[in-house]
């Protein structure tokens, strides 16, 4: 049978956006190696509810690394110690009996805390609404194969398109910049011929929106790439800069 582990958790608790927050310490005596990290939090919450306390709030949905809902800082690392892994896919076999784990929410001006580990990432939606799309009204499309796209470009566009919008890049960045997220979408759409007509307005509007939301500037720390669960490359940021300069040149 799986080994039982005694795990101590130091969790950031904050009752609401304007409330004073702080760490609380809890012990989960019967964690086991097959559990996912979020299942450990589930076990903790069941324990808290039974004790008449409020459970720890955290966002989650798919629990398979694709929806981008989950996201906490674990021992100082966005999404925790395993590379290219959203925290819902992190498993307890990476820990051992007696370990203490510190859990905090994303911290960034652009992501106000809602409660405990839950933050407001709606700024990301507003960045996309500013231009992260190709304008193609339903029904107006030509045959899908009328526009061949080199496999290399299509594959590269797909690499950038896999961003799950989790916000880890912002949380890990010393400047709390949203550049990796924004650039991933700009890079994807700039690689596709369908995206060409709007490329200039897109990059201008998205970058402006990013600034308005209170995210910092990128100064090439590359912490974002290191924590990104999808391995989005910072080469996207270079593409975004190039696109931006070209757009301003007009």
């Amino acid at each position: 049978m799986a080994n039982s582990m005694n795990i101590t958790l130091k969790v950031w608790r904050q009752a609401g956006p304007d409330a004073q927050g702080g760490f609380e310490t809890y012990v989960v005596p019967d964690a086991n190696e097959h559990m996912s990290f979020l299942e450990l939090l589930d076990v903790l919450n069941e324990q808290l509810i039974k004790e008449g306390k409020d459970p720890v709030e955290f966002d989650h949905d798919c629990r398979e690394g694709i929806c981008g809902s989950c996201g906490v800082v674990i021992d100082g690392m966005a999404h925790g110690p395993q590379q290219r892994t959203a925290c819902c896919q992190l498993h307890m076999r990476h820990y051992k009996d007696g370990d203490t784990i510190v859990i905090e929410p994303w911290r960034a001006e652009g992501f106000p805390i809602i409660k405990d580990l839950v933050v407001d990432r709606s700024a990301f939606d507003r960045i996309i609404a500013a231009g992260g799309y190709i304008s193609a009204n339903t029904g107006a499309a030509q045959d899908a194969n009328a526009l061949p796209i080199a496999k290399y470009n299509a594959d590269l566009a797909m690499d950038y398109a896999t961003c799950i919008g989790c916000g880890a890049c912002v949380a890990a960045c010393p400047n709390a910049s949203a550049s990796l997220f924004t650039a991933a979408k700009i890079a994807q759409l700039s690689l596709l011929p369908q995206g060409d007509p709007e490329r200039k307005t897109r990059v201008r509007n998205m970058v402006d929106q990013m600034d308005k939301e209170g995210f910092g500037d990128c100064s090439n720390h590359a912490e974002c790439e290191a924590v990104c669960p999808k391995g989005i490359s910072i080469s996207s940021i270079a593409i975004m800069r190039r696109e931006y300069v070209k757009a301003l040149a007009d």
Binding site: I134, A136, A140, M158, Q188
Partner: peptide, 9 residues
């Protein structure tokens, strides 16, 4: 057709 026009890779 629609999805390709939207840039679905």
């Amino acid at each position: 057709d629609q999805c390709v026009a939207q840039g679905v890779p």
